[in-house]
Structures are given as structure tokens and as C-alpha cells.
Design a protein around this nucleic acid. Structure first.
Length: 114
DNA sequence: ACCTTGACATTGG
DNA sequence: GCCAATGCCAAGG
């Protein structure tokens, strides 16, 4: 894989999503200083190291839908993990108005130090 | 260098 | 809300 530093930032940002909250590929890209690279976020999560506690399942599409096809093994796994922490998933989708992560000032500053 | 492929986003119908 | 068309951009062939 190429461009490890971008992946590092992405993993780091995703790791700061609190339990019970979700984010989107675009939001993670923006917060990671990589505007316009939502697709890279998906790629990075695909490579996310098992040993690093990266909550990849808290990242959804901009409309709240799980990125994997409904009913697929991956989608079912993601749904289960989300529900375990209290996030409601219906028809392969989460209501963002209710569960989307709103990073606070401290978190934004934390990201900028990097 | 060219072409294809995505765990994407936005817009318009 | 669903679908299609566009724009996007890094990876891999």
C-alpha cells in the first residue's frame, strides 16, 4: 500500500469516534485533512490493523447507509457491532440526525497538532 | 502512461 | 426515497 501517513491520520481520526456514535467517509476525510478523499477512507479502513482498535464499523455513507450491500456478511457484522453499542440500524441504515458524531473543539485541536 | 475499480458525495429527476 | 449521471482520486493491472 502507498501513502501510509494518510492512512495513519485516517485510523487516528476514526479511533476518536465515541462509542454509540457514527461518522461518514467524507467527514473522516475532512477531519483528517484530506478533503475530497472519502474513497481513500474506505480503502484505509480495509487495511486497518486488527491490533489497533480501529472502530471501522462506526463509519457510514453520507446518507447513513452501511456501505456494504444489505444482507451481505459484512453488512450483518457491522450492524451487529453497531447495535451492541446502542446504535439503531434499520434497513441497513442509521438515522444520522440521532447518531452522527459531532466532534468538539478539543478534538479538532487534537487533530491539528498532528 | 492508460484503464479499471471502488467500504464515496452531490445533484437533479 | 430511489436511481442515474458526474465528479472525485488513489491503487493495481
Amino acid at each position: 500500500m502507498k501513502n501510509d501517513s494518510s492512512y495513519q491520520k485516517i485510523w487516528s481520526t476514526v479511533s476518536s469516534i465515541p462509542i454509540g456514535k457514527v461518522s461518514s467517509y467524507g467527514q473522516i476525510a475532512d477531519l483528517s485533512g484530506l478533503p475530497g478523499r472519502a474513497r481513500l477512507v474506505g480503502k484505509a479502513l480495509g487495511y486497518s490493523p486488527e491490533d489497533r482498535q480501529v472502530p471501522w464499523y462506526r463509519v457510514l455513507r453520507s446518507d447513513g447507509k452501511i456501505a456494504f450491500p444489505a444482507g451481505s456478511e459484512q453488512a450483518l457484522k457491522q450492524t451487529g457491532l453497531l447495535q451492541e453499542e446502542g446504535v439503531v440500524v434499520l434497513n441497513n441504515r442509521v438515522k444520522l440526525t440521532e447518531f452522527q458524531w459531532q466532534p468538539d473543539l478539543a478534538e479538532l485541536l487534537f487533530k491539528l497538532e498532528y
